[in-house]
Structures are given as structure tokens and as C-alpha cells.
Write a protein that binds this DNA or RNA. Structure first.
Lengths: 135, 135
DNA sequence: TTAGCACTTGCGAAATTCTTCAATTGACCT
DNA sequence: AGGTCAATTGAAGAATTTCGCAAGTGCTAA
């Protein structure tokens, strides 16, 4: 109980919250790779990559071992790939929903009377529950 | 292309990287709830909760509407629940893996000779690929 | 031994995110 | 109109992250 469950979850997601770390995980999806290969693809300074790898290591999402002169990294469990896949899915729906909403705003602008420059609503919610079908 | 795909992904995960936001999403999994109910369960100041809700709103993970005096929130898509589920799963395997590793360290401490106080290795990787079965 | 590649670590500066306080908006009631 | 509850907003300060540089470790080949 020392660390509440929802906090552990938040930390898990937070470790995925960085472009370089996402790229690393995606690259590792098809097999272990040496740092040098990662470095060749992701343009970022070696020390920076190393720091991000350290974050992933601490979180237990990747493992590393040394193979001769190079250090190899691999996903610590295939579940990581699942998580990335789930992310991809949701990104799709969230983005298309957003676009749909934008379309709606574009095609149906200010219906009734004119609106003076200074009195547009500041609230983020429009009134009433969203269209309820059975009623 | 203005926003690289992996950056959008990182932002998505980062949105989930906060205990309060995780709790909100989990609570919303079984139906829409007014802010007031969320507030009753999650102990945090109203304004703080509101800020976190705003983050979730901007990211498109929740939607809100006003129902009389209260503001209701709900998941914008059930996919969000999937993502949380995937997180739960991975958290399980990562944590048990970690524990297994700790066990191993506890049951098999320093095999050969004694180690002087000042010369433990500073590297994070131990040499050689992990146990290769077929060889 | 010396040299050089492959990576990692420590550290300070810059950028982001979190938290809280005060003020504001909206809806409802009397 | 005035009061109250529900929730949001803006802004400032604290706390965390991120990034690049300099310096180090570990391996291998001369």
C-alpha cells in the first residue's frame, strides 16, 4: 500500500510520455537492438538517448546486456507492444472525433443573432445532455 | 505531418501520467458522473480537479455537458477503457518481473571472492547475452 | 600500454508541469 | 435582486523533466 495503485499506473504511463522513449520502444518491437542502431535512426545526442534508456530501464520496460563492445536493449515483455498498440488505436479514434467536431463547428457557425466582440461565452460546456435518442 | 506521429503518441500517454487523471478515467469507466461525485471520492481541491479535467478535455479523452446545476463528465470513447486495461496488465507483469529479479538477487548473492567496499561495478549491465537455450 | 569506439553518468540551465489562491461564471432559489 | 452551490479560470511559485556538455567506464584492437 506504500504506493497507491493509481500512482503506479500514472508512473507507467508517464514513462511512455516522451517521443524518444516511444520511438525506442517501437523500434525494439521487432527484436533486440544495440544502442548504436537506435542512435542511427533517432536523431538525438548519445547522452540524451542514454538518459531516456535509463528511464525505460528503471521503469522495467526494457532490459539491457552487453554483447562485446555494444550494449543491447530489448523489451522486457511483449505486453509493452500491446500497450503501444492500444495507444495507436485510441489515437485514431480520438483524432477523428476531434476532426469531426471541428467539421461541425465549421459547417454550423453562430445560428441566431450577432455576437458582439466582447461577449462570447467563456464556458467550455454547452447546456443540456447530448442528444438522447429514446425520449 | 506538422506533428510527428510518435509525438502525438507521447502526448497521449503523458495525459494519462497523473494519479488524479487516472482516477478520474477509472471512475468514469462505469458511466458519466458529475464533478461533484468525483470530488467526493478523490481528495483534491476543486480547482485542482478542474485543471486535471481540463487536461483530459483538451486531449479529447472526456466530454462534458451541463445538467442543471452540475457538470457531467464521461469518457469520449470506450477505447479509453481499453487503454487503461492494457496498462493494468502490463503493470502486473512488470511488477512481478521486478520482484522475481529481486528474489534472485536475494537468494544468490556474490558468488565468488569477497568484494572490497570500494570496487563494486558501476555499470548497469552485466556481461553477456541472457541465457541462450539452443546452442 | 595506449588509442578509440560505444555508452553512461553528473551536473547546471532551460522548459514543462503541478498546486494553490483569488476571482469569476452559471444555474437555481427565495 | 441578492444569495448560495457547482465548477472553471488566471496567475504565481514550487517541483519535475529535459537537454547538452564534460568527464568517465568498459571493451577491443594496435
Amino acid at each position: 500500500m506504500s504506493v497507491p495503485l493509481y500512482q503506479a499506473k500514472a508512473e507507467l504511463f508517464r514513462t511512455l510520455g516522451h517521443p524518444v522513449r516511444i520511438r525506442v520502444l517501437e523500434l525494439l518491437q521487432d527484436g533486440p537492438k544495440p544502442v548504436r542502431d537506435l542512435l542511427a535512426v533517432i536523431e538525438v545526442e548519445p547522452s540524451n538517448l542514454s538518459q531516456q534508456l535509463a528511464v525505460l530501464r528503471r521503469a522495467g520496460m526494457v532490459t539491457s546486456y552487453r554483447d562485446g563492445p555494444l550494449v543491447m536493449y530489448s523489451l522486457s515483455t511483449p505486453d509493452v507492444a500491446d500497450l503501444l498498440a492500444a495507444g495507436r488505436r485510441i489515437l485514431g479514434t480520438v483524432l477523428t472525433d476531434r476532426d469531426a467536431l471541428l467539421d461541425e463547428l465549421r459547417t454550423a457557425p453562430d445560428p441566431p443573432g450577432p455576437v458582439a466582440a466582447g461577449d462570447r461565452p467563456r464556458a467550455h460546456v454547452t447546456n443540456g445532455p447530448p442528444a438522447r435518442p429514446g425520449r
